[in-house]
Amino acid sequence: MNKIKKAAFGVLIAGLAFGFSAFTTIKKRSVYYYYQINNPYGAPNSPSGYAYYSGDRCEPGGNLCSSQWDIGTNTPPATDGQSLPSTGVTFQSGSVINGHFE
């Protein structure tokens, strides 16, 4: 492979990697981290007790700090402390972060 072909292939690889990453990240835009602030011993997939916070608010210790929820067509959370809607939301399995809300 000559140098021009190598560079062209490099551009292709770079574009595909960037595009794939952007696609998978944007696809997850209706998925948000919600923090369990009221019911740390409850089932992680039960929507009660969860609230939205924009930053990373977990601290070590405990089994349920936050998990990801797909809020579907619900309005995206705009402010910290907003509760997870009780309907139209889907728990994302394997997304539980251990710890506890700060």
């Binding site: 292939f9 490099g10 690889i13 770079a14 574009g15 990697a17 960037f18 595009g19 794939f20 990453s21 952007a22 990240t25």
Partner: peptide, 12 residues
């Protein structure tokens, strides 16, 4: 190419 994939994927 592996570095390009890693860096572009993580950067995006």
């Amino acid at each position: 190419y592996l570095f390009i994939i890693l860096f572009m994927y993580t950067a995006a």
